[in-house]
Every structure is written in C-alpha cells, then in structure tokens.
Design a protein around this nucleic acid. Structure first.
Length: 493
RNA sequence: GGCCCGUUCGUCUAGGGGCUAGGACGUCACCCUCUCACGGUGAAAACAGGGGUUCAAUUCCCCUACGGGCUACCA
C-alpha cells in the first residue's frame, strides 16, 4: 500500500433500524481508519426510494453515535440532533448524487461498457419463468446488448422507458483480491449484465456505491460477505474508468444459534434494542469486535481505543460467527462493575421505585446487587423486598433446618438488641456488622446457621438473598428492626 | 439447480507439519459460606469424513459431506 491516507466508510441504506451486523461492519471500518490516523465516513445509500423509512437516517446516526462510532466525515447528527453533512467530498447522501451517477453511466455507455435496455418488466418476468421451467440458469439474455445505435437514440428520443445495463465480458475470468479471503476467481460468462441505472433514473448499488467510493477517495471497502458475488461488477466499473482499486474486505456473517444468517425471528438484531435494554456501549463494542476478529492471545477485555490500536484486516476470520448472547451478558456484567459509582447509580436509579424518597437507601440497594446484574433493569426484581410495605413469610421457613421456632424467636430478639447498639459509623458498614454479630453469636454459644438464617430470612422474606450483614447495612437500623418485628409478629401469631 | 465462500470444545476463538491442541462464555464439581451471587480451584468438552504429500499432518493439496452467501430496475 502507498502511504496515502486511509479512508473507510460505512454505507447503510436507511430502511429501518441499524442491524447489529451493520454495527460490526461500521466498527471495523472505524477501527481501521483510527489505527492509521485516517478518516471514517458515513454515507447514506438511499437510491431505493421504495424502501425508504422516515426517520431512519436520524436513528442510524444516533445509534452509531451512542456507540462511539461517530463518523469523522459525511452524514452525522449535529448538537441539536439534526441530520447534517460535513466534508469536502459531499454530498454524502446518494439520492443527492443522481446527476453524478447519470454522468458516469453515460460515460460507460460512450465507452461501450454499458448500454441502454428497453426490456419491459413483463418480458423479463417471462424470460425468467422460461429459464426456470427449462432448468436453465436465470439471468438477462442480452436482448438489448447490441441494438443499433441510431435505433437506441430514436427510442430514447421518443421517451421510451429504459434502464442502463453493464456490458460485461462474455468470456474469460476475473480475480478478486480480498484481504480476508485471498484471490477469488469468477467466470465472466456466469455474471449478468447488471442494471446500473433504473428506469426512474436512480442508480443501483453497483454504480452508485463504486462511483461514490471513488469520488470519496475510499481506500478500503469493508462490507458484508453477501457482496462478494457482485464484486466482479464492481471491479469492472473501477477498471472501465481506470481508477485505482480499493482494498476489498468481505466480512463473515453474524449468525443465529442455528447458524443461519442473524435474523429478527431469533432475537434482537436492532442495535438500538440492545442499547435500550441497558447493554453498555463498551460491552457491545468489545463483544462485536471479537465476533469474527481476534488480535491473538488470551485477553477478553479491550477498550475501544485498544481495539483501534490492535486492529488489522488480516486477522479477520473467514467463517461466520454465532451471536453468543451469554458472552455478551457476561461482558455487560463486567463493564457494569467497572463503571464509576456515580455513573452506575445514575443507570440504576430509574429502575428503583420513584415513590421511595430516601436516595441514600436507594443507592445502597443499587450498590448491593451490583455484581449480580447483567442489565440495570434487573435491579427491580432483586430489590423488590426492600421496598415492600410488608413481607410475606408464609412461603419461607424462618427457622434453621430442624431447629425450633422458639429458637428462631430467641435469636431474632437477640439480634434486635445487637442492631440497636450499633453506632452511627457502624450502621451502614456490613463488614463491621459482621464482626460484631459473629462475636455476639459466639459469646452466646450459638451457631452461625441457626442465628443468621432466621435473621436473614426475617430481613428479606426470601430463601435466597445477600447476607444479613449486608441487609442490615443497607436497610439501616430502623428499617431492620421493623422487619424483624414483622417476622416476630408472624411467628408469635 | 448454477456460481462463490466456509468447517478447531455447545458457543466465541488461539495455534499451526512434531504441542498433554491453549484461553474465554456456558455447564458440572469442590472450596469459601447462614442462603444466593461474587471470588478461588478443578473437571467434562474440539481439529467434519476420506484420500494424498511427508519420516511426521489438526496444520499443505484434492475429493466428499455439511453449513452459508449470491443468483432483482433491494441494498
């Protein structure tokens, strides 16, 4: 490679949500640009008017920016959240480049590398059906490939509807050099004369994307594997114009559990859904980066910056990768635990009852369950008993194993006096509380189990919960004593 | 059907002509322990199959099987 500046791009079409696979494609493009001090740009491919979804561009940009995959150039969201463009190579929205695409198409026609085609949709449909019935490969039969020039001019002058097709070689082969897959050879005779300008005047992907990649000085075309089969057409266009080819990298697909292409049916594929559920951007980035690429070694955790430093196209895997939600969950828990307390608390607070006014109490609860959470929203289930007016003890056993109820009552009464004696410094210190209570238990000659179990169940109303020391520290003495009284009342009833 | 791509534990992967094939998630066991979670220790778990090449193939080549992508006036 020459030392020219690396320029990569992510070029989605605004047909709805941002697919999680698209996020990875965008991420790799950004990572490569970052690594080489280059430019990562966002271009919107909206040449198919029929599939346009209102608001999709904003949504796309917002999701990308939330994930810190903000483009250096091209389409982006300004401070007010409005869609704008920046950069010298614009416009970056393909529908605004129609005239440019038209000009390139005419040049191709002039060079005899493309031709107008007047075939109707009906004729094409008939052709396909005949081919299918006779079990021949489907494809355009070249009906308009060699029309008389004068006839073509007349028909166009008469306003006859037409498209422009590529005039591909009929023999020989073409070799695509892909950084990930090496040389891939295709026979020209098997490749269709692809439509590059539709009858509505809009270019198709094949022309639009190549023309724009060239005009925007893209050095590395990073895209999904589904494009590999059409790469010959793209190389043909580049070579027809004598343009220097970009580096091609066709990424392996992200798959469902059953190895089919990741689809909506089998889980969430929209990046925004993950964000909304509470998956953290660094966790998502870490996870996606390692889905199909690995810098070698045994590390699992990488920051966005570290990824940019280590990234390289050559180490991308060839095989598709199953989207492993379990691992994403593990990563999210990991990143949740790494968050500064302030940020963590801000994330959790919305999931705690708004009616509870004691913010300190709520914060202690949030911190208590931190290592158990995969998603912030899960706090509401874990912490439910803290906010309940009354606990229901009927479903749990307050006495330890085969110990008696009277024994449980005795231990709970003792615990009340211990809690009442806690100093202000001790009352929210689980460690100190543990030392004190264990010491008291020992002086009494009691056992940890027969004392701590009733105490913990009295405080939580549940068989499974954090330790009684943590519960006391989280509740504070007043609420702790009230809970124990509730349990006592239940036992003495 | 045709063309193209792929195949290391269940999953993500490391490795690469000679290794006890390594790590992570998940699973299981044990430890810690009043329960759960965390943490610690350990276990089960893979080179798709068949031919070559080679002193030696999981690694290189070929074939088969299986999986996937493409086969639009969609991207």
């Amino acid at each position: 490679m020459s030392d020219k500046r690396v320029r990569t791009r992510f070029a989605p079409s605004p047909t709805g949500f941002l697919h999680i696979g698209g996020v990875r494609t965008a991420l790799y493009a950004q990572l490569l640009a970052k690594k080489h001090g280059g430019i990562f740009l966002l271009r919107v491919e909206d040449t198919d008017q029929a599939r346009m979804v209102p608001g999709a561009v904003e949504n796309l940009c917002r999701t990308l920016q939330q994930l810190n995959i903000t483009p250096d150039e091209g389409v982006w969201l300004d401070e007010n959240g409005a869609v704008t463009e920046r950069g010298e190579h614009g416009p970056y929205t393909q529908s605004k480049r129609q005239a440019i695409h038209q000009k390139y198409a005419q040049e191709l026609v002039a060079m005899d590398k493309a031709y107008p085609c007047f075939c109707t949709a009906e004729r094409l449909e008939e052709l396909r059906q005949t081919q299918e019935i006779t079990k021949r490969p489907t494809g355009y039969d070249g009906h308009c490939r060699n029309l008389d020039k004068q006839e073509v001019q007349n028909r166009i002058a008469n306003g006859e509807k037409h498209v422009i097709r590529l005039k591909l070689p009929k023999e020989g082969s073409v070799t695509i050099n892909d950084v990930i897959r090496g040389d891939v050879i295709f026979d020209w005779k098997l490749i269709d004369d692809q439509v590059i300008i539709k009858s509505d005047g809009m270019a198709t992907y094949h022309l639009a994307s190549m023309a724009d990649d060239h005009d925007m000085a893209i050095t590395h075309v990073i895209r999904g594997e589904e494009w590999l089969s059409s790469a010959p057409k793209h190389v043909f266009i580049y070579e027809a114009f004598g343009w220097e080819l970009p580096v091609f990298a066709h990424l392996p697909l992200i798959l469902n559990q059953d190895k089919s292409k990741l689809s909506k049916r089998q889980g969430d594929v929209a990046a925004e859904d993950y964000l909304q559920k509470g998956y953290l951007p660094p966790a998502l980035i870490n996870f996606l980066a390692l889905l199909g690429w690995n810098p070698s070694g045994e590390r699992e955790i990488y920051s966005h910056d570290e990824l940019a430093e280590l990234f390289n196209l050559e180490k991308i895997n060839k095989a598709g990768a199953v989207f492993n939600l379990e691992k994403l969950n593990w990563l999210n828990n990991h990143y949740l635990r790494l968050l500064p307390d302030e940020e963590y608390l801000a994330l959790i607070n919305p999931h705690l009852p708004a009616a509870e006014q004691d913010l300190e109490f709520k914060n202690r609860i949030a911190l208590l369950f931190r290592e158990r959470l995969i998603l912030p929203s899960e706090i509401s289930v874990w912490s439910e008993f803290f906010f309940a007016d009354k606990l229901d003890y009927s479903a749990v056993k307050l006495n330890w194993k085969d110990h008696s109820t009277n024994e449980a009552i005795e231990r709970l009464k003792a615990a009340k006096t211990w809690i009442a004696e806690l100093t202000e410094e001790q009352e929210h210190d689980a460690g100190a509380i543990e030392t004190i209570i264990k010491d008291k238990i020992q002086t009494q000659g009691w056992g940890n189990g027969d004392t701590l179990w009733p105490l913990r169940v009295a405080l939580s109303g549940a068989e499974k919960s954090p330790s009684p020391f943590e519960l006391i520290a989280t509740y504070g003495p007043k609420r702790s004593l009230a809970r124990i009284d509730e349990a006592l009342a239940f036992l003495l009833k």
